[in-house]
Nucleic acid binder design. Structure first.
Length: 497
RNA sequence: GGCGCCGUAGCCAAGUGGUUAGGCAGAGGUUUGCAAAACCUCCACACACCGGUUCGAAUCCGGUCGGCGCCUCCA
């Protein structure tokens, strides 16, 4: 049984879809006016693991994650760039999809765009007007929060206690048109000279929240099983979605609300508006995308994830210790996978060996960790045990006259399959990843493969002549450059420290 | 003003009423011509502070201090 913390009830509770065996999952996607940053990466990795785990647990998941391609920030950025808003949105949608793929996230089953759902948005707004949950004011349409008595239930706040304008971002003109300060726009009239879309209430653009109500309903129906997003969406975005959707349908909007914590920098939230962010792709230039994925899983999904980096005297970023550590773990994972895959057939014999507990129990441990509110740090602890077990297995197989049983090897392989299935780790070709890590580090250190290969050849010659002093001198000079040599039965290979 | 979160050993980070989290770093060891990798052992007798409840609290309750988030940009 999967238990997840639910924001609405503020407790961990069993995840129970309406229809047993099926899960309708909606996750709020990005507004595509810039590159995805680490905060987005974290968020979508969290829901990716959630969807993978639900599927691995036997649920037929319909995963919907929208793209907000109509938004004031897109209009503003496009105007600054002198390009069409849709062109800008389309471009960043592509970049976003590339970044998600590099993180190893599965594509959602449906990725709806606001620009393709205006009719549904109009219908929803009209329905709210018909039910007196909304009103028209000067070409704008607002939701009347006082018409929805349970307004505030998700974010656990009381309309009378809220401080209007506490965020210091209120628009005086807009406030004048509202009946209550917390009323929010369903439709906003477009000023002259600004791109707009024709609607029954005049030319304008949709309010921020209505899109998700309209699109989730269009693709998943009136009641979702699970809705996810960043903690910053609890209020007002998700609160307003509830008001809109339940106001229109009269049915519960969503059975389970999941929110992930922020990525932080110096204990402050990473956000586009603060400008304190690193984009996913600039990080990918420094470390394996899978290391970024791994890093996001090192803390519980609801806790803050603090990012550190090192600077040189000029203030340039020189490194990210956490990503470097994560990349070493990823390298360890793939090195282990490679060892298992390359066990010589002669070492694996048909005999009834029993797998070690850390291998035999890995799949269950993984599932149990994720069942308990998606506890990824515990899952990674189980992974550490598993990899240690696989290395012991390989050590045993490769020892003098060593042999291991086929069942044990099969269990280890199944462990890797489960790892991929639930956490989305370890799915790539081991050799490719390891070489890419090595070559990226070598390039960063100014080390060329050719010079290393030459040095290795010289050292091999020196060793053949038993000239160990010279062999060790070569090793020492390479070590200084961060090159590590590994003498194996099939020759000498190298990695970068 | 309202609502909420956090404070765990050198560092990162789980757990949350009584039994080893895990990782990194560090120290020994197996192995190796030397190394590396891998594995083994050790490693903290940790839980911001002060009270209270309890047979027993880092874990529950109250308070204090420190940090953070949201209260119509946000993942």
């Amino acid at each position: 049984m999967i238990r997840l913390y639910d924001t609405l009830t503020a407790e961990k509770k069993p995840f129970e879809p309406q229809e047993p065996g099926k899960a309708k999952v909606y996750v709020c996607g990005p507004t595509v006016y810039d590159f995805a940053h680490l905060g987005h990466a974290r968020c979508y990795v969290v829901y990716d693991v959630l969807v993978r785990h639900l599927r691995a647990s036997g649920l037929a998941v319909t995963y919907v994650r929208n793209v907000t391609d109509i938004d004031d920030k897109i209009l503003k950025r496009a105007a600054e760039n002198g390009e069409l808003p849709q062109a800008l949105a389309d471009r960043f949608t592509e970049h976003y999809r590339e970044d998600m793929a590099r993180l190893g996230n599965v594509a959602p089953d449906v990725e709806p765009k606001v620009s393709e759902h205006l009719p549904q948005i109009f219908a929803l707004i009209q329905s709210l007007l018909d039910k007196d949950h909304a009103y028209v004011a000067d070409g704008d349409v607002y939701f009347a929060v006082e018409s929805f008595p349970s307004y505030g239930k998700l974010s656990h706040r009381d309309l009378t206690q809220m401080k209007a304008g506490a965020s210091e971002r209120v628009d005086a003109d807009q406030s004048a048109r509202k009946r209550h300060p917390a009323d929010f726009a369903l439709w906003k009239a477009a000023p002259d000279g600004v791109q707009g879309w024709d609607s029954p209430w005049g030319r304008g653009r949709p309010g921020w929240h209505i899109e998700c109500s309209a699109m989730s309903q269009a693709h998943l129906g009136e009641t979702l099983d699970l809705h996810g997003g960043g903690l910053d969406l609890v209020f007002p975005h998700h609160e307003n979605e509830i008001a809109q959707s339940e106001g229109a349908s009269g049915k519960p909007y969503c059975r389970h609300w999941v929110h992930n914590g922020f990525v932080e920098v110096d204990k402050t939230k990473m956000s586009k508006s603060l400008g304190n962010f690193f984009t996913a792709r600039e990080l990918f230039e420094r470390v394996e995308p899978e290391a970024v994925r791994y890093f996001t899983m090192t803390v519980h999904y609801r806790a803050p994830l603090n990012l550190d980096w090192t600077l040189d005297d000029a203030g340039n970023v020189t490194g990210f210790p956490q990503f470097e550590e994560a990349e070493r773990r990823i390298a360890y994972l793939y090195a282990t996978k490679q060892r298992l895959e390359s066990l010589p057939a002669a070492r694996v014999i048909d005999r009834p060996d029993v797998p070690a507990p850390e291998i035999a129990g890995f799949q269950k441990a993984l599932a149990a960790a994720l069942d308990d509110d998606l506890n990824m740090p515990i899952a990674l602890a189980a992974l550490s045990d598993f990899l240690k077990g696989v290395n012991e297995l390989c050590d045993a197989a490769m020892a003098k006259k060593g042999k291991v049983g086929t069942k044990v090897v099969a269990a280890a392989r199944e462990g890797f399959a489960a790892l991929h299935g639930r956490l989305g780790l370890g799915a790539q070709d081991a050799r490719t990843v390891l070489l890419r890590i090595r070559d990226r580090r070598a390039a960063a250190a100014g080390v060329s493969a050719a010079e290393v290969e030459q040095a290795i050849a010289d050292r091999v010659a020196a060793r053949a002549e038993k000239d160990f002093a010279r062999a060790d001198a070569i090793r020492a000079s390479l070590t200084e450059k961060g090159v590590e040599l590994h003498d194996g039965p099939d020759g000498t290979t190298w990695t970068m420290a």
